[in-house]
Write a protein that binds this DNA or RNA. Structure first.
Lengths: 342, 342
DNA sequence: ACTGGCACTCAGCGTTCACGAGTGCCAGCG
DNA sequence: CGCTGGCACTCGTGAACGCTGAGTGCCAGT
């Protein structure tokens, strides 16, 4: 049975009331708080249909109705507009972010900002290495057979690794290698590096072959193979905002899942090419069982239309979707603009 | 009234049983589980004294006794020996830490290891900048009026900041500045830098004065004034191990406190000159009100006897002190040795 | 197609009651 | 003098019970 407009309206009302009060909503309360111009009995009939279709359910007989994951999905897709941010929120973003001194600082501030605005758990992925370009490569001699490789990207991220050299290598040789790799790789996307590194090693002068090979393999390992993308998180305390009401059983599995960087990266890092509209995953739709009682709102961010990382929030399925989506989008844009300025 | 040996023994038994069962322990259970060679009635008399002295208390009349913070303190100070680690634990440490590739990796592994071994919330401070020495300073030109300053310390930590230059500065000038600051600051403790930077700026050639001044102020700001020591945390899920039983009211304030880096730094970073024996702060003894329901076991760590940072765990006052203290000490030592190898 | 009425269900809440673990106290014993 | 067994008392816990009220489904009537 297709849902007519009034049934949709009823669903919307249920979602809104339930999110606001976190109590199952009954037919009488519904007609009182929304001007539906029909009687409770009529609403009850609509509810019966909505329940049959799986959009709402009753916790027990003789209780009101509660949206299901499917109900939230319909609500998000068809029944809600993204709330424009309030002036206060815009100001909060400005105030919070102004004066950030480096990338670490930007990420930290962003994640706390998100947590505070949405009152939920916020996660921000550091700008991904593979999607960034090399600004500069620095080699620093530590001993005769070891040197430090420092990679500086155009997103301001810095990575360092120790390179074990096959044999004693002079400072001059190191300087030459520095010149070489900067000439070859400077300005290139990290994702392009593998081939470049290969040819570079092949074309190096004989006496630099061996050390260049060591350097090359560390480079590849660091930048490409090892995808230990870093993330920052804040606001875990928000999980307990309403006691434990929002999480059936315990919040423990949720906390555990949130400590797994791998899980978070999957959650936040899998962003499509768009920065414009946040992606919403509701309850069941999550691939991680431990997060089935939560919803995730995530977005890519980056300068302009490019995506260098993801950010988002994790909260109970019973969340204020329009508000959260709007906030995530606004923050993602703001951070993108910030990165573009550098 | 001074406590005789048997009363101390009773206190120890109460602490051990309560930690094991997390239920108030009564006189009968006590004589059954420990061979005290006296009757429950006698134990009751001892308990009355212990209660009068503030070492234990009754949650309600007709319940067993529970240690107070003061009781735990006495237990830790006089009644417990640090448990030697089991072979399994030693192996776990090895297995967990082997193959760490860089400082970030070491810190991450350490914090997870601690959380897993103690089943509590673990916190590790990154090697403090002020207690490290400069290995190398790198300057990288970004545009004609901006350059990136990268500081590499002997503990493997890397910090970077953008320096706004007062006017166009050539690559040659930058190279000269790089040479200067490395000659002056290389190998020095960061805590020594302020005076050195000052004289360096004063003695610079006239044409380098202005850019050196900019560089100097950023250096000071980054390394000394700004003490944004970083920390890593893991195991927050362990707070909910026993439901919320361990935390009166809610774990929310605890989670909130743990998200405040400032709080954690105070907690973990304030370590005395010794790496040998972990410091224990029990309940009330904590300066932060929100952490009054927790105990903190912390230790300094670093190569040899020097302290470059702190680490520790936070858990309910009802914790296995001997085991936790032993684990914290062992991990701190291991990490110290690891740093010494570099 | 909507509405008012009605019987039915059941979670939540307060009351009551019995149980039992644990205590404090005391008289007696070695 | 310190320890013990006995005893009366306290009080938190959990089960049983009944009431109330919100909410429902259904049906006959407009």
């Amino acid at each position: 049975m297709p849902l007519d407009d009034r049934k949709l309206e009823v669903l919307r009302a249920i979602v809104e009331d339930y999110v606001a009060t976190r109590e199952p909503v009954g037919s009488r309360a519904l007609v009182e708080r929304h001007k539906l111009n029909v009687s409770p009995a009529t609403v009850r009939n609509d509810m019966a249909v909505l329940e049959e279709e799986g959009y709402i359910r009753q916790p027990h007989t003789s209780a009101g109705r509660v949206p299901t994951d499917r109900g939230y999905r319909l609500f998000v897709d068809r029944l809600s507009k993204i709330k424009p941010l309030s002036a206060a929120e815009r100001r909060a973003i400005e105030r919070f972010m102004v004066g950030a001194v480096d990338l670490d600082d930007v990420v930290h501030r962003t994640v706390r900002l998100l947590a505070q605005l949405t009152q939920q758990v916020a996660v921000v992925q550091y700008p991904s290495l593979t999607r960034s370009a090399v600004r500069h490569l620095e080699l620093v001699s530590i001993s005769t057979t070891r040197m430090l490789l420092v990679v500086i990207t155009d997103t301001g991220r810095v990575e360092q690794r120790v390179v074990e050299l096959p044999g004693p290598t002079s400072d001059d040789d190191i300087a030459e290698m520095r010149r070489l790799i900067n000439a070859q790789l400077g300005g290139r996307l990290l994702s392009e590096t593998p081939q470049l590194v290969q040819t570079m090693v092949d074309e190096a002068e004989p006496n630099l072959r061996a050390p260049m090979a060591s350097l090359g393999s560390v480079l590849l390992e660091t930048l490409v193979e090892r995808h230990d993308e870093r993330i920052a998180m804040a606001g875990t305390a928000n999980l307990t905002r309403n006691g434990l009401v929002d999480f059936p059983g315990s919040i423990r599995p949720v906390l555990e899942a949130l400590e797994e960087e791998v899980v978070l990266l999957k959650l936040i890092g899998e962003v499509e090419g768009e920065n414009a509209t946040p992606r919403v995953r509701i309850g069941d739709e999550n691939e991680f069982v431990d997060l089935r009682s939560t919803s995730v709102v995530s977005s890519g961010y980056g300068p302009g239309d490019t995506v260098v990382g993801g950010l988002g929030v994790v909260g109970p399925t019973r969340m204020d979707y329009p508000g959260t989506i709007a906030t995530v989008r606004a923050v993602a844009r703001y951070v993108g603009d910030l990165l573009a300025q550098n």
